[in-house]
Each structure stands twice: as C-alpha cells, then as structure tokens.
C-alpha cells in the first residue's frame, strides 16, 4: 500500500514536470517512479490510509493560505529589520515543546517555523524544538511557545493526526 501511494505521487509529479503525454515519456516515467518507490518506500509514511481521507485535504488548503500569509509577513519583517538604521534585533535560542506526535507532522512544523517571521529551527530532540529567534520579546516559555508554535500546531494536528 505504501509503495503504491508513493508510486502514484511520483508518477503524477513526473507528468507535471515533463508535461507531455506521449507513450515513451509515460514508460520512462513509470520505470523511474517504480525504481524510486521501491528504494524509498520503506521510509515513507507509516500509514498511507491518511492519504485517502478527504477532510485532511480541506485543512491543507486552509493551512496553505495561513502559511502564505505568514511568509509574506516574514519577508516584510526581515526587510524592516535589515533596512532600518538602528537594526532592532535581540537574538537568542529558545526551547519549546510541541504536542504533535508523528514525525511528518514535526517535520512540517519545523519547516513552517523556519518560514515564519524571525524564527529558524535549530534542532528537534524528541518533542523539544530549539529555535533561533531574531527578536526575543519575552522569556516566559508559555508565552513564546504559544507565539511561535501556536499558529500552526492546531492545523497540522488536523492534517497529520
């Protein structure tokens, strides 16, 4: 089941990238997808059933909009810090705890954190995230956990768990 899901994803990606539907192209794509899915299928998602539950796709779309909005905010934030003459930065590495359980959820959360205003994920150890923050506005773990992780955690929980 795992292998089939991965095969379908890779094959569709191949079709989109090459963007032509001639027989030789389809054969090359199928062979390449087959080899890739055989090699990497083992380390793919643990239960691929989640791929066929439509309500998850709804939350992915909601999440995408929030994510793009945060990205745009992040860019203006960086532009402001870089261009202002006094450079308002106060960097530090903080420790936060997540409630997500699955590996893929954590990966997406870490990637989202890197793309949001002023934060980069340094390391993940079990359920603790170490985050480099360009402007540490408070030293209370509750406040900053909510500020950094809270935005995405609730959506990712619906998508991946």
């Amino acid at each position: 089941m795992k292998y089939v899901t991965l095969f379908i994803i890779i094959f569709v990606l191949w079709l989109l990238i090459t963007f032509n539907i001639e027989i030789p192209n389809l054969i090359v794509g199928a062979v390449a997808a087959l080899i890739t899915s055989l090699v990497f299928g083992r380390s793919f998602l643990k239960d691929s059933k989640k791929f066929f539950q439509p309500h998850r796709y709804f939350w992915i779309i909601v999440y995408l909009f929030i994510f793009v909005w945060e990205c745009i905010k992040a860019n203006f934030d960086v532009a402001y810090r870089v261009l202002s003459p006094s450079m308002p930065i106060k960097p530090g590495i903080v420790k936060t705890k997540t409630t997500l359980k699955t590996d893929i959820g954590k990966t997406f959360l870490a990637n989202s954190i890197t793309m949001t205003p002023g934060t980069i994920t340094v390391d993940i150890i079990d359920d603790e995230f170490y985050i480099h923050w360009i402007y540490v506005s408070s030293k209370d773990p509750k406040v900053y956990t909510d500020k950094i992780l809270g935005r995405f955690e609730k959506y990712l929980k619906r998508i991946f768990e």
Partner: peptide, 27 residues
C-alpha cells in the same frame, strides 16, 4: 536584494541565515 543586504549587515551566522532563507520565499 533585501536578503543580500541582510547578509552583509546582520552580525553573525545565525542572523544572516534568517535573512537569507526568508528573502527566498517572497523573492
């Protein structure tokens, strides 16, 4: 361009990476 200016102006590796990764998204 803002990302590149950030690479020059910000003080250490960690802050410079912040500017380098974020400008890629919108840039």
């Amino acid at each position: 361009l803002f990302g590149c200016i950030g690479l020059i102006r910000l003080p250490d590796v960690y802050n410079r990476l912040q500017s380098a990764t974020k400008s890629v998204t919108l840039g």
